[in-house]
Design a protein around this nucleic acid. Structure first.
Lengths: 155, 155
DNA sequence: CTTGCTCCTCTAGTCGCTAGAGGAATTAGG
DNA sequence: CCTAATTCCTCTAGCGACTAGAGGAGCAAG
């Protein structure tokens, strides 16, 4: 849907408008998430309204922690509104489940870290709870069951 | 403190015992987190008891989401027990704060994702809440205030 | 002796950017 | 018109913390 691309906006303008950094926009173009816009005589990218919308979509999805590949799928869906939204629903549900898993994992972590710092006698390392607990896994109640994935939430 | 390194364990054994994968152990050696152990005649790594403890420490700290650099510092502290544990305490506190920030951020996210999937009419994309909300930031209550950092929790 | 496992080193890839070099084009002011 | 500042361009390399795979050597069991 880069049809009526009049090319009114520079990359800097869309960057400022969307909150996505200039190199990141170029990166999105490179990986095919954002279509390559037409260029000015001088070779500069000239974006249209549709690109701005697409970028806003991407940005919001990234803020919500969706991975690039998921966003790619969601964008394809957005382009064909007559399709069933089952796929979009599944992606969102999966991601929600993942976020819930991460919250659970981080909450357990938080408890353990809190015990660590509370137990710290502020003396020296020899009797430090922090070091002790790290050294001996048996000292903690957290019997691990797998934890959160590497991805975080964009800021 | 890799003094009495008798070299009884192969990399595979310490990997199994610690739950850290073989290439990861070699990576830790490469970045200087784990000392390079002596080798057998055939050139294989032969670890001692102290290496196993160090690796357990690292693993547990990674599980708790500490970054490699933080772990490096914590290991140095562990090696000198007469030092003040203020630094260890600070590292743990910082990390706790970071975890709390991430939980808050993910909880806000979770709410938004939940609204997305609840609103989904399971029809087609044209009237899909998921796509709609992603396309229009104004549709959501989440007025962003910065979100969690990229690092996750090892698993 | 052969099979199959483990181990070795090395390079390159992952994800989602970010940083910097080195240069061209545009814009603002004088 | 000239200059200076800013923005833009492409390109390569780097981040963190691994992970994957190639290509080969060692080693224990049958």
């Amino acid at each position: 849907m880069t049809s009526e691309n009049e090319g009114r906006f520079s990359i800097g303008e869309v960057a400022r408008a969307s909150g996505v950094k200039v190199p990141t926009i170029r990166y999105y173009e490179e990986i095919g998430l954002l279509p390559a816009p037409p260029r000015t005589e001088g070779g500069r990218r000239a974006y249209g309204e549709s690109d701005r919308h697409r970028l806003a979509f991407i940005r919001h999805a990234r803020e919500l922690g969706f991975e690039i590949e998921a966003i790619r799928t969601l964008l394809q869906l957005q382009d064909r509104p007559e399709q069933s939204c089952a796929v979009a629903d599944a992606i969102a549900r999966d991601h929600l489940a993942e976020v819930e898993r991460r919250i659970a994992s981080l909450t357990a972590l938080k408890a353990e870290l809190a015990r660590m710092v509370e137990g710290c006698s502020h003396g020296h390392v020899g009797e430090c709870r922090v070091i002790e607990i790290l050294a001996d896994h048996n000292e903690c109640r957290h019997h691990h069951h797998g934890a959160a994935a590497p991805a975080g939430v964009g800021g």
